[in-house]
Design a protein around this nucleic acid. Structure first.
Lengths: 197, 197
DNA sequence: CTACATTGTTATCGCTGCCTACATTTGGAG
DNA sequence: CTCCAAATGTAGGCAGCGATAACAATGTAG
């Protein structure tokens, strides 16, 4: 029988996958580097080669999350027409789908947002998502389907709605079926708010 | 000189105040029972008499937060007329004021929401807040200032907006002045969405 | 082949939450 | 008033954690 090799092969990737699993199952507080090391079959100090601190691992997880989310939203926009309503609906549904499927991860992603020493990589990842939403509004305005107004102000309600829906969807304040129905209601609500007077 | 008395006097209250301070300053993750005990001038195991686990202390903090928030919102509703617009504005401003002043606490309050074994006391505290918002909508419907529709569905956008605004206000994704201006924009947005067709 | 960078291991530190056993204080029943 | 039980605080110890330093194995570039 062959002994486990001294080198793991791709410990970094393995740690990230394991971390995401336990994040999903038990939340970020329960995540322990030592436990990840055990599950990966390496020594307790091995992870430190790839993630200097626990926070660094969480950051890496968050960045990966932002990448997955933005590309999912990009993809959903590609599959839909040009009308503002259709695009907004697509974006909202994708965002909420991600939120429903990766609640803890999303929480982590936004939880790092106000940390003064979040990695620059993380910050740019967040900005890309923000830009995507802002562009959506700007496009709607160009097409005359969204009331005119300063972009940064106009994009706020969209953010607000997405963030709020997410919170409700992930933190389970409402039963799942109510959410399901409520999403449509809320999307209609948003569209009504953005409609030109 | 008099030795410190064997009994603290009101350790429970002292722990809660200290805990809220460090919660505000350094977040819930940095909160340590042992450190609280040190600051209170008491042995490391003393807090366990009042809070069996760390989670119990956090729960107590959250409950206190819900009580403060609901009574602030009640008070703000007492100071305002009966029109739906005025009442919604008052509620929204109070909620956001609380969120701005107690960001970490609010995060804690909602963070416990989906935990299966949250204390019943915590759960009822959350429901009281939910009822307050639902009543607001129902009242608006009675006065004909809000579109008709099932209550649970109609109250959702309000929750969504409040939650979303809170998230933006606390997690600092937007600069503070943009938030300030954005609140009015968003309240107008919500009113537009609730207006009868 | 050798020198070096990468990746893992071992050992240790100080911290944490939590538990059990014991000490002191307080307050109420008799 | 006294005594006993409950409430509250202390002492000590346990296992787990993140982090770091010193050392070992492996891969690789020249």
């Amino acid at each position: 029988m062959k002994a486990r090799p001294y080198h793991h092969g791709d410990l970094r990737a393995a740690l990230l996958t394991l971390a995401e699993d336990t994040l999903r199952a038990r939340g970020p507080a329960e995540l322990s580097l030592r436990e990840l090391a055990r599950e990966a079959g390496v020594s307790p100090a091995a992870p430190s080669r790839h993630f200097k601190t626990k926070q660094a691992l969480l950051d890496a997880l968050a960045i990966e999350g932002f990448q997955r989310l933005t590309s999912a939203m990009d993809a959903s926009l590609d599959r839909v027409g040009e009308s503002f309503g259709a695009r907004l609906t697509a974006v909202a549904r994708t965002y909420l789908g991600f939120a429903a499927a990766n609640g803890a991860l999303l929480e982590l992603m936004y939880g790092r947002k106000h940390d003064p020493d979040a990695s620059t990589e993380l910050i740019t990842a967040m900005h890309r998502l923000k830009d995507l939403a802002t562009d959506l509004i700007a496009d709607g305005q160009r097409r005359g389907e969204v009331r005119p107004g300063p972009l940064d102000l106009m994009s706020l309600p969209l953010f607000v709605a997405l963030q709020g829906l997410t919170q409700l969807a992930t933190s389970g304040g409402f039963p799942a079926d109510q959410i399901e129905a409520g999403v449509d209601e809320t999307i209609a609500f948003i569209l009504r708010g953005y409609a030109p007077s």
